[in-house]
């Protein structure tokens, strides 16, 4: 009986249904227990906040699927944020230029992460941690408090919405659809799962491991870059503290969404459910009005419980 239950839970987790059911449950509780949750303003706000974490999480999944991890995403957000606001400096034309610049930087960072991992055969954990420190240093060297600003027109766009759905959220969903197609219906995606599942075996099948891993890191950096642009546009000015801690949130979301850090498993639709859960917990705790410190405390408890419940530990094969 208990085995039966476990396999059933496992099945739910496979498709990410369990995590979305929990999200719905939390929404129901929030609607019943708070007055302000179901307002259009709050929903738009939640989805706006969610978009950044959702994109970083999806990017992280690409790396996790190949059996690696990217701890440098938070510092990538920092650097992109300060550069966007510093270079754009309130000007639309310069904003386009800044966008091109950070795109190039994102590709370069992703490429370097994978180059170092592949060439020297060092664990991604160490390499991306080092990269994180380097980028953080670069961001602070550029500006300590933040410089310049994002053009008003861009900020207006970022806060704009159709009903409760922000434009950026819809763009983000478009990107998720793209990533999910890439992972499950393209050769590159299949190779990512294969490399993460068993790299020796992938090599024997004639798969180019280096190139596959490089693609996954570049995808991750590009998604992170877009997330950072959204984030800094909401803030108006990019401070080097932007994005603090987002790497751990994204990894938590990925694990809650049923991916394994060992690689070879994970679905976009499920891991962004993890990101949604984390965002909602934050929002609901905020609405309850308990003190900030206790919020942090409770959030920690919920994350541990959530990972325990949703990660693949229970799923025995």
């Amino acid at each position: 009986m208990s085995m039966n239950l476990e396999t059933r839970i496992g099945k739910l987790k496979d498709d990410g249904q369990a995590i979305w059911l929990t999200v719905i449950l939390l929404i129901v509780i929030a609607i019943l227990k708070t007055d302000s949750f179901a307002t259009s303003r709050n929903l738009t706000n939640v989805l706006g906040q969610y978009t950044s974490l959702m994109l970083v999480t999806a990017g992280m999944l690409a790396v996790v699927v190949t059996g690696h991890i990217d701890l440098s995403v938070a510092s990538q957000v920092r650097l992109v944020a300060v550069l966007m606001s510093g270079v754009a400096d309130g000007n639309n034309i310069k904003f386009i230029f800044a966008l091109v610049l950070v795109t190039v930087i994102a590709c370069f960072v992703g490429f370097m992460n994978s180059l170092i991992i592949n060439t020297f055969n060092i664990d991604a954990f160490i390499v991306t941690l080092g990269m994180s420190i380097i980028l953080e240093g670069a961001a602070y060297a550029y500006t300590e408090k933040g410089e310049g600003s994002i053009p008003m027109s861009v900020s207006d766009f970022v806060y704009g919405s159709v009903g409760p759905l922000p434009y950026v959220f819809m763009i983000g969903i478009g990107m998720l659809v793209f990533l999910s197609q890439l992972l499950s219906h393209s050769r590159t995606g299949l190779w990512m799962y294969a490399v993460g599942g068993d790299s020796a075996m992938a090599r024997r099948s004639g798969i180019d491991i280096y190139r596959t891993v490089t693609k996954s890191f570049i995808v991750c950096s590009l998604f992170t870059m877009i997330a950072a642009v959204v984030q800094v546009s909401r803030q108006g000015i990019g401070a080097p503290s932007t994005g603090s801690g987002v790497e751990l949130l994204a990894i938590t979301a990925v694990v809650m969404g049923g991916a394994t850090l060992g690689g070879g498993k994970g679905k976009v639709s499920a891991v962004v459910g993890g990101a949604m859960l984390l965002t909602l917990i934050n929002n609901v705790l905020n609405l309850t009005g308990i003190s900030q410190y206790w919020q942090t405390f409770v959030r920690g408890l919920i994350v541990v419980a959530g990972v325990g419940l949703f990660s693949r530990r229970l799923l025995k094969r």
């Binding site: 799962y193 599942g197 075996m201």
Partner: peptide, 14 residues
């Protein structure tokens, strides 16, 4: 690879 479908394993790399 246990997580892939039979046909995906059959065609992996090709």
């Amino acid at each position: 690879l246990p997580e892939l479908a039979v046909y995906e394993n059959m065609f992996l790399g090709d």
